[in-house]
Amino acid sequence: MRKNIWLFRFCLAFVLLLLFLQCARNPIITEMDLGEHSGEKIALYFAEVYEKEDMSTYIVKVGESKVKVVCNDNFEEGDVVSFNGIVHNNTLISEKHHIHRHPDSAFYLSIPAVFLFLIVFFRVWEFDLKNGIFLRRDKK
């Protein structure tokens, strides 16, 4: 019986691994190439201002890609901004933008939530190492 369960777990883990590999081999999250979108209206989310070239031209970093953006607002290096605009000559001409004052707030709010969850979860469940399953504490 226990062998069957481990076989079941192995099969699921294998299928999951195949799914991971499929996504890694056919990436849906890729380096940005603005050239492919010339003339198109695109959105650029959570770009970090990397360098200020002149009064309205900025080099921004999204993931590991660097992109040139023209925007009339004034940003400092390190600001996180989302842009919406049209691509022209490998440059995004911003029409709308949104400055993210606290871009990591969701992350920082999540940390105590994880601890809260772990406390609540393990108040009800405990892991039985011998059988490799979670058991209810009130059933013991």
């Binding site: 056919n26 999250i29 940005m32 979108h37 959105a43 989310y45 959570f46 993931g63 590991e64």
Partner: peptide, 19 residues
């Protein structure tokens, strides 16, 4: 807004139903 991918460079959302 598409933040779920963090560095998801552009586009309009998450591909929930991929593949």
């Amino acid at each position: 807004y598409p933040y779920g991918w963090y560095g998801w460079p552009m586009g309009d959302g998450i591909w929930f139903l991929w593949p």
